[in-house]
Simulated assay, not measured.
Amino acid sequence: MGTPLGDFIRTRRDTTQPESLGLPDHGRRRSPGLRRSDLAARAGISIEYLTRLEQGRDRNPSPAVVNALADGLGLAASEREHLRYLAKITGGACQSHTRPAPAPRTVRPSVLDTLRLLEPGIAVVTNRLGDLLAHTSGFETLTGGTGLLDTGSPNLTRYVFTDPRARDFFADWDAVADEVAFDLWLGPSVENTEWFATELAPLAGPEFTRRLNHHRVPPRGTLHLNHPAGPQLRLRRETLEVSSDAQQLTVFLPADEDTARALARLADRSRGHLRAIS
């Protein structure tokens, strides 16, 4: 049985062209990308050990091996961080594993107070599973009419993959889908991620499972939205980690003057009947 760590190493090896690392192209290969022998040589490990890692038969590589593999694959900084994280959770899962469970949805009062200070701006508290835990009135204005907040326990990941309205709302739906699927690997705990992915996979289908298993680190550029009221919006995102709670506070800012004016018009229409922070 494979592991997330082994899957990531194998996927990156298959998608890395030898010439991109300055290696000679030896002609036809049985599989695309780097040979195991090429990566093993670059990382300074045996082919047998690399095979065991990829197949999930060895789950506890040392930090030195993890760093050597990152060097051998020519990983970017964000990809290196993901490799280290997968090594951590793969080894932890081997040592002890508790039952899958949903993540807690409680937000500390001090975080809620911080959110109130951001009114009437656009801000939301989430976890990496996509649970929307608290938000400003500005966030409700931004998402009004999209269906994102229609349920009692709204979740961005579930919305992206199961609600047809998400493909209209997110002009760059594929990029957003890559983001929310990747973020599950950074969930509050391995057990929380396992619980959520198991629940969502039958509903979301291959669009979800394919992205989850690719381990593609998303670039997280400007967010492009098609608001149901008409305006097209371009938003920058600033995310602050609430590390002790495995939550994030994200603030959305207009990326251009047209978006700023459109948001002002949306706020004017909604003023007087907004709800408090959920």
Rank of each mutant, 00 (worst) to 15 (best):
L184W: 01
R10T: 07
T114H: 10
E54K: 09
P102I: 08
A260K: 13
E241H: 12
A264L: 10
D25H: 13
H273L: 08
N226K: 11
P228M: 07
E194I: 12
F139R: 00
P202D: 09
I47D: 13
T114Q: 11
R52V: 03
S110T: 10
G205L: 09
I9Y: 04
G187C: 07
A64K: 11
A77Y: 00
R57Q: 14
R10C: 06
S31A: 15
L249E: 05
A101G: 02
G130N: 02
F161V: 01
R35G: 03
D7Q: 12
P254R: 05
R165H: 10
L132R: 12
R10L: 08
L263Y: 09
D113K: 09
D258L: 12
T51W: 05
E207H: 11
E48I: 04
P63T: 08
A229S: 14
V160S: 03
P228C: 08
L149W: 00
C94W: 14
V217A: 10
R234I: 00
W173V: 07
L117M: 08
Q17L: 13
H273F: 06
H215R: 08
A204T: 05
T136Y: 08
D168V: 11
R52P: 00
L156N: 04
G130A: 06
R10S: 10
E79G: 00
A41F: 00
L73G: 03
G121W: 06
A204H: 02
D168S: 11
F169G: 01
L86C: 10
D25Q: 14
Q232Y: 02
L274K: 08
R84G: 02
P18L: 11
L149D: 01
H97E: 14
P188K: 03
D168W: 03
V176R: 01
L73V: 08
R271M: 02
D258Q: 15
T151I: 02
Y49L: 09
G230F: 09
R59Y: 04
I122K: 00
R211C: 05
A93T: 14
F196E: 00
N192R: 05
R265H: 14
S96V: 13
L5N: 06
A101N: 01
A43W: 06
A166Y: 05
A77V: 13
S243T: 13
L75M: 13
W173H: 13
L263M: 09
G230R: 08
P63Y: 08
D172W: 00
L184D: 01
R269N: 03
L118E: 06
G22M: 14
V190Q: 12
P104A: 13
F252D: 04
R261E: 11
Q95A: 15
Y85A: 14
E48N: 10
P63I: 10
L200D: 11
H26G: 07
